[in-house]
Amino acid sequence: MRINHRDVVAGLFLVLLATIGLFLNMDHNLGTARRMGPGYMPWMVFLLQAGLGALVIFVSFGKRGERVEVVKPEGIDIVRIVSVLMFATAAGTLYLTQYGGVRADKVVTFTIMAGAIAAGAIALWIRSPETDGTMAAWTQGEFVAFVAAMVAGVLAWYFIRGAGGYFSQGYNAVGIGMLVGFLVLAIPPGWRYLGLICACMCIFGLFLEKLGFYLALIGTILLACLAERDHIRKPLGVLGLTAFLLVLCWFVFIRELDIRVNLWPT
């Protein structure tokens, strides 16, 4: 059997997002064609998207040139699918009941549905023989890091948001959760750049309001530089870059534009 693997995943991805959307849209009143309620347009849009996603999957079966084995779940696959499913259910329930204002009975259906589709997509994905890019063929390490990052991130967020003070303010707990998740994700080489670059923007968000503009910049730059092996060999360049960027950002954003930020730790 020949299918274009990436298109199957892309199609599933679109269908998954549309299903989530349609599900969430159940809270909104559709109204009538004359007086459209808040749910009318989203309803049309998500239906269309689900249809298009299905079409993408359908067309992918006709594509030539990319030979792919039929997916046959093996032991390891089942372990993967079950773990992803469990994680999706747990995280979804946790988030939606804590923050979402979505009714609890819907949450269970929703997460199971989302989890099942996500698991299917990932199962297809990891069996793909295509090797361009990291996502097409996951190694064992990449998969473990992916799940570990999700779990670590959610746990970090969940436990730290009650810690009080800085940790309970604004989006700091979310930021820490994301930071932890991305740092764990950065461990296997395949995810390194994604994890590090995202983590260093999280550092910026976490530092800025507490530690001030300059320390946030320094943190971001140093972490960003970890992504490049050259920098680790030649730390002097990093130092120069940091100094240069500090001066430049001070000049542009503080002196000329006067954006409103804390400059120093408070």
Binding site: G170, V174, M178, I197, M201, G205, L206, L208, E209, I259
Partner: peptide, 25 residues
């Protein structure tokens, strides 16, 4: 690193809110 830093500051200054930084991520 320069692009990253400029983007981070630019995004933050939209609303003076770190929420936008996390959205960007």
């Amino acid at each position: 690193p320069s692009i990253l830093v400029f983007c981070s500051i630019g995004v933050y200054s939209l609303n003076n809110n770190v929420f936008d930084v996390y959205m960007t991520v």
